[in-house]
Nucleic acid binder design. Structure first.
Lengths: 176, 176
DNA sequence: CCTTACATGTAACAAGTTACATGATTAG
DNA sequence: CTAATCATGTAACTTGTTACATGTAAGG
């Protein structure tokens, strides 16, 4: 259900094609949701079938037609219903924590590799956040009302990542 | 793959039935992994089929037979391979962040309900962590080598939850 | 009497991944 | 010449959820 809701949200802001949505998932929505192009195309088609989206086919010379989706009143109603119901608890799935359950069983160099790889991923995430911040929220003083809440999500993302990094540094220091 | 790895880890520590594993997912492994009983039974059967687990059927009077699974050498090899390969980045899926993208569109009381519900969930999670800590790591000074890494995962879980809570309090304060 | 614990499963569905497939245009 | 961008899709598979199904024993 959540992918569907995210699609409704982004298409409500601005209609677009499956490809457009994929680009949004890679840039401004990168810290919110990710999905493969196959998942997006499939879901958009299902939503059109369910009457939540309209689809206008725009022919293009020498390229596949663009299928521009936009939200319908039924789609907006479905979105409102989703917004009105508080989210349930999310499932816990932490493969790294699982690895830590037999941490002493590993060769030391495998541990180092794991931690180094994690560190890179966390730093890459911070950089991605910084890019979003620069593009969308460069001046926190001048945020519009509509920008304020999305900006908070970005800040939380940053803070969670920093919590991870601090913890990682402690672990690495202890392992020496 | 990760569910499979978690099952290998827990059955390597101690053989058990699907039901046993489910109980572990509810207690000592609660902050690591969750899965429904159907998912567990299905996966255990597949793993037995793939030669990763042995299954010994223990008849019981007046109750369904217990199927006790234990890890095979092939299972241990698969686990070692999983441990040796650093984890890839995990997918980003934050439905709450999506809601925040149209936060100003909601009625104020719906927002309050959402935040209150989140707060309850976070507090419940902290309590679950405290229970695990009490049962498994009551004396941090006296941790065995094997307990040390799992204890670190618990601490990270707590710290992440606290980061969420601090953020939540800021948002709630600002909303007044 | 009702709920919880014990102990297993089938079936259908929803969500997400990976591989394969097409074909023009533009930038290096 | 090669890679990236634009733009769409099919098919097969894995993973996770929900509903249905069975039956005993113990505790309140």
């Amino acid at each position: 259900m959540s992918l569907r809701a995210v699609l409704l949200i982004t298409l409500q802001r601005e209609p677009g094609t499956g490809y457009d949505v994929l680009q949004r998932f890679k840039t401004g929505l990168a810290h919110v949701w990710q999905a493969s192009h196959q998942q997006i195309y499939r879901e958009l088609d299902k939503m059109r079938g369910a009457g939540l989206l309209d689809c206008e086919t725009v022919p293009q010379a020498e390229r596949p037609d663009r299928k521009v989706y936009s939200i319908t009143p039924a789609g907006r109603a479905e979105l409102d219903a989703w917004l009105a119901a508080p989210l349930g608890p999310s499932a816990v799935r932490q493969p790294l924590f699982a690895k830590f359950f037999i941490w002493e069983d590993w060769p030391a160099e495998a541990r180092q590799r794991e931690l180094a790889s994690l560190r890179e991923q966390l730093n890459a995430r911070l950089q991605a956040y910084a890019a979003i911040e620069k593009e969308w929220f460069s001046d926190p003083q001048a945020l519009t009302a509509a920008q304020r809440a999305p900006w908070h999500t970005l800040r939380l993302g940053q803070q969670l990542t920093e919590t991870w990094l601090t913890w990682l540094e402690e672990i690495q220091a202890e392992g020496e």
